[in-house]
């Protein structure tokens, strides 16, 4: 059965504290930190973007993979911050891992779930026997307008998964999606920052779709939260994933391993995939992982993974990279994020 053959995550090493942003805008720092349950978020270096983060994640995945880049038949990069409006990020990634030219590639966009859409697309091609291996990436250098609520959480990071049916270490038992046309968060062509429907992003969007996909998947598989050792959800902040996990019947022991947003913020397309990377780094053979992404607009892709032999050889030590970080102030952050225009 097909699934994840190897994986890798990348989070830039710079961090800004929620308090620093709150103080900049004269907001109540304690209330902001407590309300979002995000202490700090990751910030890309000035020369990092979705393409570089995708490449670093992909290269980490190939460090431990049983195959080389040229084995790939497809590369999909999901993001809402592709460096180009027209010209794929996926070709940059493909070239950087030596996958070109006999392969297909495309960029995907579905707010924060474009990465898992790529996993499903690659999985379909593998299961159909069209390709041997596919690479699916979710990565973002997300944007929040200065002073907007999004600015407290919009972070940078990404994760890459090599999907195949040989050498699988996390079998995809099944996947289900729940999708509707729900305008909770958007960015129009040519606009720098996204807009959102504030509280409309919660119940009718995040919770309805995540719960919808999750329940449908468990019903189809005949599983319940008790059957899983770990649970990972999209994490736009530190609060929503905990609430959705609890409402579905998962407890802290199951979701804490994959809950990264309190430390790194919301990495958008990278968010739930990075949670999965952190979980795979700790899961043992035989463990089961429940996973659900969410993307505004809106949809959720739920997956059930079964961890297989060989997982020990694939571990990446993602969380260890969180120990060597550099905290920056708002001025440095503004420079890193290109918020200061020089022309």
């Amino acid at each position: 059965m097909a699934g994840i053959v190897s994986y890798g995550g990348y989070v830039p090493r710079y961090r800004i504290r929620t308090r620093e942003i709150a103080e900049m805008w004269g907001e109540d720092a304690d209330a902001m930190e407590g309300g979002l349950r995000v202490e700090s978020k990751s910030v890309p270096d000035e020369d990092e973007d979705t393409a570089t983060i995708s490449v670093e994640a992909a290269r980490t995945a190939f460090e431990n993979a049983p195959v080389e880049g040229d084995a790939l038949g497809a590369v999909y990069v999901g993001s809402e911050s592709h460096p180009y409006a027209v010209k794929p990020t996926a070709t940059i990634v493909a070239a950087s891992v030596g996958a070109t030219p006999l392969m297909t590639a495309a960029d995907l966009e579905f707010a924060c779930k474009a990465g898992t859409a790529g996993v499903q697309a690659a999985l379909g091609l593998v299961e159909a026997g069209r390709i041997d291996y596919g690479l699916a990436i979710g990565a973002d250098v997300s944007q929040g307008a200065p002073g907007d609520a999004l600015e407290y959480s919009a972070a940078a990071g990404g994760a890459a998964f090599v999907i195949g049916d040989e050498g699988v270490v996390a079998e995809i038992e099944d996947t289900t999606s729940y999708t509707s046309d729900t305008p909770d968060f958007w960015r129009r062509e040519g606009e720098r920052y996204p807009q959102h429907g504030e509280r409309f992003t919660g119940k009718p969007a995040y919770f309805k779709h995540t719960e919808g996909a999750s329940k449908a998947l468990m019903e189809r598989l005949g599983t319940s939260p008790d059957d899983y050792d770990y649970a990972v959800f999209h994490q736009p902040n530190g609060k929503f994933p905990v609430r959705v996990a609890q409402s579905l019947g998962f407890d802290e022991e199951q979701y804490e391993t994959g809950l990264l947003s309190p430390k790194i913020g919301n990495t958008y397309s990278g968010a739930s995939p990075l949670g999965l990377v952190a979980t795979l780094d700790e899961a043992e053979t035989g463990d089961r992982i429940f996973f659900a992404s969410f993307g505004s607009g809106a949809g959720s892709d739920a997956f059930s993974f079964s961890v297989k032999d060989g997982i020990d050889e694939r571990r990446t030590g993602l969380k260890e990279t969180f120990e060597d970080v550099e905290y920056i102030d708002y001025a440095q952050y503004a420079k890193h994020k290109g918020k200061i225009r020089r022309d």
Partner: peptide, 17 residues
């Protein structure tokens, strides 16, 4: 080695990694 943006061919040009 790591993979980074090296230069932009202006705001409207290509990104050189």
């Amino acid at each position: 080695a790591c993979f980074r943006r090296v230069r932009d061919e202006g705001e409207e040009g290509i990104v050189q990694y």
